[in-house]
Simulated scan of single mutants.
Amino acid sequence: MDPHTPPPDLYGRPRADTFLRFLTAFGDRYGPALGGPLLRRNPRRPPAGPVPALRLVVTARRPVAADAVELTLADPSGAPLPAWQPGAHLRLTLPSGRERHYSLCGDPGDATVYRIAVRRLPDGGGGSAEIHDGVHPGTRLAARRPRNGFAFCAEPAVLLLAGGIGITPLLPMAREAARHGLDWHLVHTGRDPGSLPFADELRALDPHRVHLRTDREHGGPPTGAELLARAPRGAAVYCCGPAPMLTAVQRALDASPAAALHFERFGAAPVTGGAPFTVRLGADGPALPVPADRSALDVLREARPGLAYSCRQGFCGTCEVRLLAGTADHRDRRLTPGRRAAGTLLPCVSRAAEGETLVLDL
């Protein structure tokens, strides 16, 4: 893809976003004309500096499901926290220095606290284990202000689909849908009743619109058609869950009553259209082969376990490295063409042509 061409949809939806397409076309047509003196920065105004990190303290911790805990975070002084909207996430810096993204699952109308829920991942990168084992009431944490890459548009008809801990961004959406009187339904799936966080809180919203579905009761995971069967005609579907769930919903969407799909992944998307290439650690360092079905970040972390990362989806920038030589296939959703040309690379999603070697400053 031409690096100057925007992705078909910034939220990862498989269908083109009409508004984004219009906005891009408008910018291409009128941007040069409008980019003159009227839009230039006032030379008397100093350039904006970096936004300071939020300083938060854990005020409460409670289990919400098997191997899942909820943390309540507040400003140590009691000051109001920055506003957020359903679907937003918080980028936390843990005591070890690890950075991780967690969806906000509280009430956007409550400016006194943030709530997040974290499931322990035995085979993860250590962030969830650190929270479960070492973060308790009184722990101080730094965070970036909430950002939203999974915005809830409050369409008149909505179907919310959650898999396990994927309920976290959808719980505020359900509250918002109920508050605005939308035609909404929520399906929450998991292995068994004990694996479903916030079950009581969800039922309290509207027991007739909340449907809890477990593999144990039904003999296995639901199909995409089964998940989408509750969609009102013309509904917008919001889905967050494991990769097989998202794939099933995408494949069944066209045959369903739903009209649009918005989704957020737990982690990295499967590599598609990949070819084997090589990354070299410095001009004289070791050469590491990257298979067609693995990311460069995964390979690099085997050689450099301390290499920072967070989203693994090309939007947070935590894993940023410098490209010294080679031609990269940038697949991120963060870097500008100028930064790419200057040698910035996000190895979580970026690749190279078959046989190419990318020399990294590591």
Rank of each mutant, 00 (worst) to 15 (best):
Pro95Thr: 09
Asn42Ser: 13
Ala74Phe: 04
Asp183Glu: 12
Gly36Phe: 07
Leu161Trp: 00
Asp361Ala: 12
Cys319Ser: 04
Pro7His: 08
Leu23Ser: 15
Val321Ile: 09
Pro169Cys: 03
Leu261Asn: 01
Ala259Asn: 04
Ala235Asn: 07
Pro37Met: 11
Leu202Lys: 00
Leu121Met: 09
Glu201Pro: 02
His208Gly: 15
His188Thr: 06
Arg145Glu: 14
Asp361His: 06
Arg304Asp: 14
Glu155Pro: 03
Arg15Trp: 05
Val210Glu: 06
Ala328Leu: 04
Arg334Thr: 01
Phe263Ile: 00
Arg98Tyr: 05
Leu73Asp: 03
Gly125Met: 04
Pro95Gln: 09
Glu99Arg: 15
Thr18Arg: 15
Pro305Thr: 05
Ser195His: 10
Leu205Lys: 08
Ala199Glu: 12
Phe263Met: 14
Arg115Cys: 12
Thr5Arg: 15
Leu23Gly: 08
Ala66Phe: 03
Thr223Gln: 01
Ala65His: 06
Ile167Thr: 02
Ala177Arg: 04
Glu320His: 13
Pro193Val: 03
Leu307Thr: 09
Ala225Pro: 04
Ala162Leu: 06
Ala33His: 08
Asp200Ser: 11
Asp110Cys: 10
Cys153Glu: 15
Leu182Glu: 00
Pro95Ala: 10
Gly306Phe: 08
Gly78Cys: 09
Pro108His: 11
Gly109Ala: 11
Cys239Leu: 15
Glu302Ile: 11
Cys239Asp: 00
Arg147Cys: 08
Ala303Gly: 07
Thr24Gly: 07
Arg144Ser: 11
Leu160Ser: 00
Val271Gln: 01
Gly166Asp: 00
Pro270Tyr: 02
His211Met: 10
Ala53Gly: 13
Ala229His: 03
Pro197Asp: 06
Asp9Gly: 11
Cys348Asp: 00
Val135Tyr: 08
Thr214Pro: 01
Ala204Ser: 14
Gly87Tyr: 09
Ala157Gly: 03
Val58Gly: 03
Ala269Glu: 00
Asp123Leu: 06
Cys311Ile: 11
Arg230Glu: 07
Arg333Ile: 01
Leu227Trp: 01
Arg119Leu: 13
Arg98Phe: 04
Phe315Glu: 12
Leu297Ala: 01
Ala178Asp: 12
Glu99Tyr: 01
Leu73Thr: 02
Phe263Ser: 12
Leu34His: 07
Glu264Ala: 03
Gly125Ala: 14
Ala111Tyr: 01
His211Leu: 13
Arg29Tyr: 05
Ala199Met: 12
Arg334Leu: 15
Asp293Lys: 09
Ala352Leu: 07
Val349Glu: 05
Arg44Cys: 08
Gly343Arg: 03
Cys153Gln: 14
Arg147Lys: 12
Pro207Phe: 09
Gly338Val: 14
Glu70Tyr: 01
Leu159Met: 03
Arg175Ala: 02
Ala260Thr: 09
Arg191Ile: 02
Gly285Trp: 08
Ala53Asp: 15
Val237Ile: 10
Arg203Ser: 07
Asp133Val: 10
Ala275Ser: 14
Ala231Cys: 10
